[in-house]
Amino acid sequence: MNLPGIEYLSLGLGIVLFLAGLWGIIHQKNIIKIIISFSVLDTSIHLILVSIGYMRNRTAPIIDSAVSKTDAASQVVDPLPQALVLTAIVIGVGITALMLTYALKLFNEKGTLEIDKFKSLKW
């Protein structure tokens, strides 16, 4: 059986999770649920980014005894996407936290977390 490489698997997984998260954002009425969905979406993006940065049969971009400095360019995976993901994770948490702050404030204002109840502004 010729299975696809893990980078493709995880990429596919990421895309499915992305869609699932998006679906949750669109479909769930509870604000906390929306935020949870967003966090799923966020994770899925990280997964996608890491998997497209992966190069088969290479090792982690850490220069130690296993990988010499001189061979690094041909032996390790591209470190840049990983650096991006690190940043993205931090940003994602920040945004999740901000969303939760909003959720809390919204709840304090109106005593509910139903997003349909916050439609005073329209048109």
Binding site: S10, T43, H46, V50, S51, Q82, I89
Partner: peptide, 25 residues
């Protein structure tokens, strides 16, 4: 989900990302 994702990161040769994801994400 986040935790399992960090495991996959290790397989994908990204241990630093895995650690961050596990801790923060």
């Amino acid at each position: 989900i986040s935790l399992f994702a960090s495991v996959i990161y290790i397989f994908l040769a990204a241990p630093d990302v895995a650690i961050t994801e596990a801790a923060i994400g």
